[in-house]
Amino acid sequence: MGSTPTALSSLRCRTMAKNSLSKVRVAIVEDDESARRSLARLLRAAGMQPTTYASAEDFRADLPQPWFACLLLDVQLLGMSGLDLQRQLAAEGVATPVFFITAHDDPRAREEAMAGGCAGFFRKTDAGSALLDAIRRVV
């Protein structure tokens, strides 16, 4: 089981602490159904309140826009990409922190995301604890 349980148990303690407060609302924009469901499940298990969208367009159409502590965007999306959405939001002055999650670690996409001021860039196979830690740091 390696180091993951340790990392997760430390996560758990903090999760418990957070649970007493109001839940952290996180938007997930991800076109792969299974990836979307599992990520939402992890956030829920970690005591957050995820809202899922299958595309950037769906996310934009969800009006009035709920308040989110942060956004988790897939880089490759059908239609508008995660990077496009990040640009649009930045242009509109939305300051919500953005995390990218990708199945395809393309250095160019990573550079572009970093240049756009994203709060973090994760691969789908990176440990969930790292993502959860990063989310907690920004909220």
């Binding site: 990836a35 599992s38 990520l39 992890l42 969930g128 604890s129």
Partner: peptide
Amino acid sequence: GAILRNAEA
């Protein structure tokens, strides 16, 4: 990635 998230959850 989905399997990993599910296992972690």
